[in-house]
């Protein structure tokens, strides 16, 4: 394991007796894009929540660049350079797009002028200039997603965790997003973890994959290794078969 990476070490999380994560170990390295995949309810969001301090960890450790941050509150973890987006978008609805992006830089303690400048840059980069003065609540879904990512980047994170950033976007929107995301880790020297159900998107974007099923790691490695992994095939086919049963 590398010194400068973000690591989950045997992390377990429980909800009222239900073991949502069971001894999961994962590593995000600066400069790489790691895809976190798995059927619905397999614990992907819970893992991100565990990394950012949003849910308590029963056992195991979270380590960021050598520093153990297990049990820290989300604010402290954010200030250490771990930024995230949420599966269900969480924007500041009565703040303008510009203010939304600026908040993360301000919370980090940047002087006002620098925070302004950084927000302005990100608005440019994410093609949000047109709606800079629109309130968060008034945006369409795709724009909300982009603002949330721009906001996460405004804190200049070392690690960026994105929970289904392309969900609900149309094809053009998600293609544009993919192009933007693909360049991020190198350009900003951060490690990126991305959860998504869109397999073609994940395959094109990610350097490595990590697969969860029922709260356990069932496979990890480069794309080809994972794609041919029997457990992965089984988990996906299995869950599809179950879903089909369910609908029938």
């Amino acid at each position: 394991m590398r010194q400068d990476s973000l690591q989950a070490r045997g992390v377990s999380v429980e909800f009222a007796g239900l073991r949502a994560l069971d001894g999961v170990s994962l590593e995000v390295v600066p400069g790489e894009i790691l895809g976190l995949i798995g059927p619905n309810g397999s614990g992907k969001t819970t893992l991100v929540n565990a990394l950012t301090g949003q849910v308590p960890i029963v056992s195991g450790d979270v380590v960021c660049a050598g520093e153990t941050i297990t049990g820290e509150i989300p604010r402290k973890i954010a200030l250490l350079g771990i930024a995230r987006s949420f599966q269900i978008v969480r924007l500041f609805g009565n703040l303008t797009v510009r203010e939304n992006v600026e908040t993360a830089a301000l919370a980090k303690g940047l002087p006002r002028r620098e925070a302004d400048a950084r927000a302005e840059e990100l608005l440019d980069e994410f093609h949000l200039n047109q709606s800079a003065d629109t309130l968060g609540d008034a945006l369409n879904y795709g724009d909300k997603r982009r603002v949330e990512i721009a906001r996460a980047l405004a804190s200049e994170p070392r690690f960026l965790l994105l929970d289904e950033p392309a969900a609900g976007m149309n094809e053009t929107e998600s293609d544009t997003l993919l192009d933007m995301l693909a360049m991020l880790p190198e350009k900003r020297n951060c490690g990126m973890l991305i959860i998504d159900h869109d397999m073609p998107l994940i395959m094109r974007l990610c350097h490595r994959l990590h697969v969860l099923a029922s709260g356990r790691t069932i496979a990890e490695g480069d794309i080809d290794t994972v794609r041919q992994h029997p457990a992965v095939i089984e988990a996906y086919l299995g869950s599809d078969a179950k879903a089909a049963d369910h609908h029938a």
């Binding site: 950012t52 949003q54 509150i73 989300p74 604010r75 954010a78 200030l79 930024a83 995230r84 949420f86 969480r90 924007l91 500041f92 609805g93 009565n94 703040l95 203010e99 939304n100 600026e102 908040t103 993360a104 301000l106 919370a107 980090k108 968060g136 906001r151 996460a152 804190s155």
Partner: peptide, 20 residues
């Protein structure tokens, strides 16, 4: 601004490092 952010979404404000 940070106060208004926390008003709109406390979880998100915490997740960007706001000392609410």
């Amino acid at each position: 601004i940070l106060l208004r952010a926390a008003r709109d979404d406390e979880v998100a404000a915490g997740a960007i490092g706001t000392n609410i």
